[in-house]
Each structure stands twice: as structure tokens, then as C-alpha cells.
Design a protein around this nucleic acid. Structure first.
Lengths: 354, 354
DNA sequence: TTGCAAACTGTAAGCGCATACAGTTAGCTG
DNA sequence: CAGCTAACTGTATGCGCTTACAGTTTGCAA
């Protein structure tokens, strides 16, 4: 790493001009084969790797797309220093009640989709998570590095987003704000929850408990709306609503205290529903015989619970992919009207509410 | 986005030179307050976001770190085009046997750790996954964009790694090759598995079945070595070894066919162990009474299986963080000797082998 | 051969910023 | 108020690359 070689070094060794070196790398066909081979030999010999900075500066585009989402700053120990010592093995008896919840699976999947689609389209992917105070600095920083930015709903203040959008296209994920200048990609929350609820009703349930998520979640609001649309006007239906926080722990706690039992517990997300299943297991209450339980999200864990969780699957990987597609579409045609894409969902009937 | 404003635009509007604009952004204290305010006003008014390319080019560093890991190219539908139509809800009865396995949790966690640590240290994080044929192009591409690169073991051919390492520091994750010029970060596989196995033995098991992973996994090799070290020389112990592929499905299939039952099934990873638990459930064999089962990894799903899975937890988030730390350490002092960090693991005793 | 188009290669001008260095202004001292 | 220093600001250069344009070579018809 003494000094990274540049086009000039390569050009000199190959006995050509820097323009030819650049051409070999950018459009090999426009260079005579003999020249090309000389250049490639020099590249190999010198260990030349072109600087994306210089390239991006000259070409006026970076070929990078940014993805910004809510922070991981809750991760335990993220402040600490790593042990310097090597190795070590400790043994502990793991108490089921201490449960470090990490339900970031959602972003993991979105990220995966984004990663796939970005590279497929020739873009690199840069990721950033929101850190409370320094959020603005981070968003600005990443905005200066990329050709387009995908942000998860509510993670970035509108004002900041507008500032950034003057430089690069922005697409907002998982929110249907509708009336702003950004492109949007979201999932069919309300109809999905409506269909789920209608299934619950068709299974005979009449006394329903709905466990909602946090009040500031747009996803949650839409799902609740779908739930209400389904029960609205149906004879004999009674509904109770409790607000949770999307976490498994909360779901379990709520479910441990429910008495009398409703016919069905409709949860606004899977983690909550899994917590409910935990609680029912502990209370020796049979699901779905004594009470039906449903979730929303379609996370992997729901496939392996007992009973397996009936849920609405939202295409998280597709969400990430769609974001990248929206971004590249706008890069291709910046004058397009703002678009709003809503991805379909899928009701998955499993044993918790067959 | 008509035309992104530059330092020149800001300088003109603020009535200062571009140097002052740059100073306001880089080291605000070196500029008189009055000047600073004028500049910041102009920045806000114009929606100025500095170009990281130009900045990186001039400053000779990008402040980005790259993370390269095995591809997601197995994801279903990644080839397809997204539906253009909006919304939609379908309902399907989900058959437990169709199981789209996505065990990328490992990389998700490593990624999370890397993301946290990178931003904490003022670096942006760029991620790339290996795509078979274009791997070389991708690695080269990303190498040109970053100040340092972390790669997961065996995802990049040595030759390519060497080429890239002439430009930027490289750290290899999850492999203790030992004798090369790169920094390494890995976990304490062998001692961890050894401790796990010793626990199994101390619980009274004598006839053991070991389900290994794929032959080309260095992690797996180390774990097997730890297992052997534990059973070696212990009286009355009989050992059988079957090679799986780290997948849940494989684990289940293998376990469905096991007869007679050993005292304990020691699995090289959690997914396999979970598959084994599935099989035992179906065969109505009690775990741990009839057979004990252990895993390795410490994935979330193991906390929620029934019975809960006894396993060796490896600190995946820490692995990601350690990679970034190793990289920044080397950036600070390129002349350092190559270092090899081994992270400690933790045996988690749960009900599948108490 | 000559002439000319096509194919290729070289020259040179930025891309937007950081920063060394020079220049200017302000603040003090005497 | 001169003289000097400290604080601040401007000028000019270059980071490594792409690319328009000009220049050169090649191939081939005339």
C-alpha cells in the first residue's frame, strides 16, 4: 500500500496515454487488442484498482445507492470496547425470561432485497442507520456519496429529506404519505389486514382482541384501519383494542393477563403474535381450539412456532428491490411524476388460525 | 435536481472564497463567526450537499469501509421483474413442507455489527455480496471505493485479495488461516465445541452422533476438531459422524432416519440442530429425555424452539464490529504486523441438553 | 501510388473539493 | 500612530479520472 498506482503509472508502464488506459477499463472494444493486452498486463503487474472517487467526480455519478433506516443503537454493548484478549469460552445457564429482543429482521430483509437489486443494476449499496442526534450529519454525508437514496418512513425529518432531494432522487419506503414530491414504495397493509380479519370472522370468531403497535407507526395505522373495515357492520362482533409496541415481550405480557379469553387475538405484527403464543403455551391454553391467533409480517420464526402462525406475509425483500428499481427509474428519467408503488401481500393460513 | 450546487455557488452567494466554504464545513472554528453564518445560510438556501467524490479525491481517503460476503443469489425470484400493478391480496394455505430456507441471519448480524462500528468511527459502510461470475469485478469495484475492506472467509480468491490488498487494507472474517499477510477476526470455534461436547459427556451421554457441515467450511472444520478433542480418550464413548450442509432441512432428514437413537446428537450449527428437533417432534421422541441435542451459533430461533436449544453462542455482531476495528487500527498504523483476533464464545445451556 | 474514411490514440480540460501558502485585516503594544 | 503579531481569508494547485476533440495510423478503393 506504499502508494496506490494510478492511471499514469499504468499508462507509463504500458507505453500508452492515460486515455487509453481509461478506455480499456470503460469500453474495452474501442481499443486495439494489442494495446488492451499491454494495459491489462500493467494493471495486473501494478495491482492497479481505479479510484471510484476520481471516476465518480469525472463522470458526475457515483453508481452508488444509499439506504437509510432506523438505528441499531439499541444493540447491547455497542458502546464498549472489544476485549483485546483472544479466545475464551464461558458457560451459562440461559434463563428463558432474559430475552434480548432484536427484531431487526425486517430491515435485514429489506436490505437484502436492496443489495440484490442494486448490484444487479450495476450500483453499489451504501447503508446507514439513523443515530439520534447525528442523524442530519449522517444523512448529509451519505447523500453526498450516492446517486439516489432510499429511506425508511419516519426515519428522516421532511425538511432534511427535502434538502437532500435537491441533489439526488429520494424514495420513501413503507409509508403512503401520498402528497409529497417523493417516490414511495409500500405494502398493501390495510387490505391485507382486512382479508386476514375476514378470515378470522369466517372461522367463526366473534369476540376479537386486536393488539396494535406503536401509535406513530404508519404501517400499524393502516393495518388497524383494515381491521376496522373488516369488522365494521358485522353482526354480533365485539372488539377490544390494546396497544403494544410490536415486541414479543409485550405480546406475551399482554396475553398473560387476558381474561376472559376472546375467540381470536389479531396482532398487528408477528413478534407480538409470537409472544401471545408463548403466553398461551404457558397458560396451557390451546391455540387455535380455545383462541385463534394471527400476526402480520411473515417472519421466518412464525413458520417454526407451535402452532405455526397464521399471518399476512409482506414481501420485505421485494420492498428493498422495488426501492432500488424506483430509484434507478427516476435516475433514468428525472422528470417523471412522483410514483407510489404498493406491493401485494399474502395471507398465509397456518395452524394458529386455520 | 436541476444541477447540484457546488462550493463555487455557495461561495458566490455568501460573498466569500471557496476556501472559506470548505473551512466552514471541515473546521468551523477556523472561520470568523460572521463569515460562517453567511456560508451556512447559503448552504441552506441552495440545498448544498458536498460531493464525497470530490472530497475524497482531494483528501485522498473516502471514509468508507467495504464489507464483502457470500452472495444472496439464491433468493427466489431475484431474477424477475416486479409487478407493476399496485396492491393485491392473495390467500394461501401454507404447507409446512415447503420451506424456503433463508439462513442468512449470520451475515445480517455481522453486518449489523459492522454498520454500528463503522459509523461510530466516522466511516460509511458499503456492502456487497458475492455473485459467482462477476465476483472479481465487484470486488475490484468496491475496492476502489473504500479505505478498507472486510471479507468473509472463502468468498474471495486469494489472488484477488492480494491484488486488492496492494491498494487498501483487508481483514478476513471467520477464518484462521494464520499464515498470510492479512488481519483476521474469528471466533473460538474449536474450544467452544470442545466445551459443548464435554458438557454433553458430563451429562452422561456416551453414544454420540455428530452432524457436521459442508467440508469446505473452515468454521466447521474447527468445530469438528474441538469435538474430537473432547471425546478423544474418554472411556466407553462411541462416535458416529454424518456430514450435512448446515441446513435445517438436512438436519431434519438426517434425524428422521436415525435408528437406533444415540444418547446425544451434537450439531455443527443451529439450523441443523433445529431440523433435528423438528424430526424428534414428529417422531414423538422426547428431547432431552430420550436424546439430547446441541447446536452451535446462537441464533434467535434457538431461543424459541421447543425444547429450547442448548448451543454455543458466537458473537456475530461483535465479529462485525471487530472487523471494522481491525481495519481502522490498520489505517491508523499501516506498518503494524498482521494480527489475528479470536473472539470468545459462550455455551448456552437450555432445555435440549440441560 | 494516392486519397479518404474508419479505426484508433493522444492531448487537454475539467469534475468539486482540500489545503499549502500568500495576502489581508484586526488587535495590541509602545 | 507606527510596528508587529495573530487571526482570518483568498489564490492557486492538484487529487485521479472521463471524455470531447484533435491528431495519427490503418485499410482499402481508386
Amino acid at each position: 500500500m506504499a502508494k496506490a498506482p494510478t492511471v499514469y503509472d499504468v499508462a507509463e508502464r504500458a507505453g500508452v496515454s492515460i486515455a487509453s488506459v481509461s478506455r480499456v477499463l470503460r469500453s474495452p472494444d474501442s481499443v486495439k487488442q494489442q494495446t488492451r493486452e499491454r494495459v491489462l498486463e500493467a494493471v495486473r503487474h501494478l495491482g492497479y484498482v481505479p479510484s471510484a472517487n476520481a471516476r465518480g467526480l469525472a463522470a458526475r455519478r457515483t453508481n452508488v445507492i444509499g439506504l437509510f433506516f432506523p438505528g441499531h443503537d439499541d444493540v447491547a454493548g455497542s458502546e464498549g470496547q472489544l476485549v483485546a484478549a483472544s479466545g475464551g469460552v464461558t458457560t451459562v445457564r440461559d434463563d428463558p425470561t432474559t430475552e434480548p429482543e432484536t427484531n431487526n429482521f425486517y430491515f435485514d430483509e429489506v436490505l437484502r432485497g436492496a443489495e440484490i437489486e442494486a448490484w444487479r443494476r450495476g450500483f453499489a449499496l451504501m447503508v446507514a442507520a439513523g443515530r439520534g442526534a447525528s442523524r442530519e450529519a449522517i444523512v448529509n454525508d451519505i447523500a453526498g456519496r450516492v446517486d439516489g437514496l432510499a429511506v425508511l418512513a419516519r426515519t428522516v425529518p421532511d425538511e432534511l429529506l427535502t434538502h437532500v432531494a435537491r441533489r439526488i432522487p429520494v424514495v420513501v419506503l413503507a409509508a403512503t404519505r401520498g402528497t409529497d414530491e417523493f417516490d414511495h414504495v409500500s405494502v398493501n397493509n390495510a387490505p391485507g389486514m382486512r382479508a386476514m380479519t375476514e378470515h378470522v370472522l369466517s372461522a367463526g370468531a366473534r369476540r376479537l382482541l386486536y393488539i396494535a403497535g406503536p401509535e406513530d407507526s404508519p404501517d400499524d395505522a393502516e393495518r388497524l384501519q383494515g381491521f376496522r373495515a373488516a369488522v365494521d357492520g358485522v353482526a354480533d362482533v365485539t372488539v377490544e383494542l390494546i396497544r403494544g409496541d410490536f415486541s414479543r415481550v409485550q405480546g406475551r405480557e399482554i396475553a398473560l393477563g387476558i381474561d376472559p379469553l376472546p375467540d381470536a387475538i389479531v396482532c398487528s405484527n408477528d413478534q407480538t403474535a409470537l409472544g401471545v403464543l408463548d403466553a398461551m403455551g404457558r397458560r396451557s391454553i390451546s391455540v387455535p381450539d380455545d383462541v385463534m391467533v394471527t400476526g402480520f409480517d411473515g417472519i421466518t420464526a412464525g413458520r417454526h412456532s407451535s402452532p405455526r402462525l397464521t399471518t399476512v406475509h409482506q414481501p420485505m425483500v421485494e420492498l428493498g428491490r422495488a426501492a432500488i428499481q424506483a430509484l434507478t427509474a427516476r435516475l433514468d428519467d428525472p422528470s417523471m411524476d412522483a410514483r407510489s408503488l404498493v406491493l401485494p401481500v399474502q395471507v398465509l393460513l397456518r395452524e394458529s388460525c386455520p
